[in-house]
Amino acid sequence: MKLGGIKSVDNAHDDSVWAVTWAPATATRPPLLLTGSLDETVRLWKSDDLILERTNTGHCLGVASVAAHPLGSIAASSSLDSFVRVFDVDSNATIATLEAPPSEVWQMRFDPKGAILAVAGGGSASINLWNTSTWELVATLSIPRVEGPKPSDKSASKKFVLSVAWSPDGKRLACGSMDGTISVFDAQRNKFLHHLEGHFMPVRSLVYSPYDPRLLFSASDDGNVHMYDAEGKALVGTMSGHASWVLCVDVSPDGAAIATGSSDRTVRLWDLNMRASVQTMSNHTDQVWGVAFRPPGGNDVRSGRLASVSDDKSISLYDYS
């Protein structure tokens, strides 16, 4: 497996690019790349030439996360002031605006069926689940406090939830916190199951393997990528090599590789069979905040694509084969 650079857009945004995702293909168009940035906009790009399709404005602070519905028609973007804007990808019509207290919205993900939007609740130490047809809050999954009755301390801010991930079967929901713990929930019964331990610094990105609903990958500030058996509470692999925080992780559609982005300004490709880094891309000149593999579908199914975004305001697109 290998990555080959295809295209890079410098100054794709006016400031740091923080979030990236692919809106899957629909009947009328190929997949689109969505990026969110500190310049308060979300931009849509046509692959492979990365032609700017549209710029969505409307957020008052930097855009921290973007998420796309599995059908490709809807997407959501959230900013630091905790407004989530849900919009139609093709027309940019606002479908809903979800509001939470600032600092209580971080990463977002749609569930594999697209019925629920899970929003990492930041300082509220919980995940909020929104129904995607009525756009009402259906549940709040709170992480139980491990510390007993100790209300003082900064314990409230310790469990700041940064990241969220759905298992491919939609039954499990995992979230990563600032203190390094990962919490696993039963998404059907809205119940907390257990913690996964091993990281001791913030976990900024999580992703489940597309094939195995037990395998979970996590990226943390401690510089490691962990592979967990999320049901058995076991740490089954660690991949180290980044020189600084690992900010993002995504798993390839074939489940054989993961890509990570880091504060050391590189994007790495890891072979899961060898559990080793097989390639390092160092074309970014600042920390890489997001990596995203293109989901399968559309006309050119065979060619895999990976996009990465960085603080250096640029977007890079690679061929994955």
Binding site: S16, L38, L80, P102, M178, D311
Partner: peptide
């Protein structure tokens, strides 16, 4: 902008907020 960057990096940082 730099404060937003800081918050983005450490969202629990109340000084920056």
């Amino acid at each position: 902008k730099s404060l937003q960057k800081c918050i983005h990096q450490k969202p629990w940082n109340h000084d920056a907020r």
